[in-house]
Design a protein around this nucleic acid. Sequence first.
DNA 1: TTTCATGTTCAGCA
DNA 2: GTGCTGAACATGAA
Length: 260
Amino acid sequence: MPELPDVEIFTRYFNKTSLSQTITSVEVFRTRILRCSSFKALRERLDGSRFVSAERYGKYLFARIGKDGYLVFHFGMTGSLCYFRGKEIPRSTRFMIDFVHDARLAFVDPRVFGKVDFTESVQDYVKEKRLGPDAMNVGLATFKSIIQASGRPIKAELMDQKRIAGIGNIYSDEILFQSGVAPTDRSNKLDDGQLADIYRNMKKVLKAAIAKHADPDALPKKYYLLPHRGKEEECPRGCGHIKRIKVSGRTAYYCPACQK
DNA sequence: TTTCATGTTCAGCA
DNA sequence: GTGCTGAACATGAA
């Protein structure tokens, strides 16, 4: 799941459920997901403190701890959050925060590719990870100059977090489908009109996905590729069948007829 | 049983 | 430095 729209939903969920409650303890069930060096230090930061807000950058969620620093979540391939009360801990919980009044926030991640980290500053963290501008905030001129600077396939470029942050395999397919651009097209060969189309559709697709609670299958089947992705079905535009290829190591779905 | 998967990172190579 | 490929990570679904 976790591309920009999913993480946006998690962030809203976090803000709705997990702010302003005193943290009573922190548990790690799989140390592999901890990226920061010291769990002890992290626990000391969290214990007795509260979250005051959460924000998203790319595929990362930053939860502000009191006045001091952020707990950072990256959801890997299968990460999610689950706020609940009581003793029944969700299956595949890897990290958990206990609040007062029996409330808990579980970081659930079957495949354990997710990460939990700590940082003093979102800006520094973004810099350290060398993330590009967030896909929902980047301006057209910046977007164009980033994409034009590379000769890689446009799909690889869109998915590269160091160029534009937030887009993954699923949504890059949809953005390119909406734009009528083949995933293998070289970034620096795209003309201004195509770049503007991709930019506009990037915003449109991400916004639509967020509105649908980051459920790709909930997007209208008539206009979107994603509900048909994974099955070699007819293109929703009726111009042929959807094809599956590899682009820079990832499976790409596209319609050869309408994505030139 | 085998294959594949929404992500990241790194080694090896041209 | 660029950019590609494949592997590794760990688990579950088809």
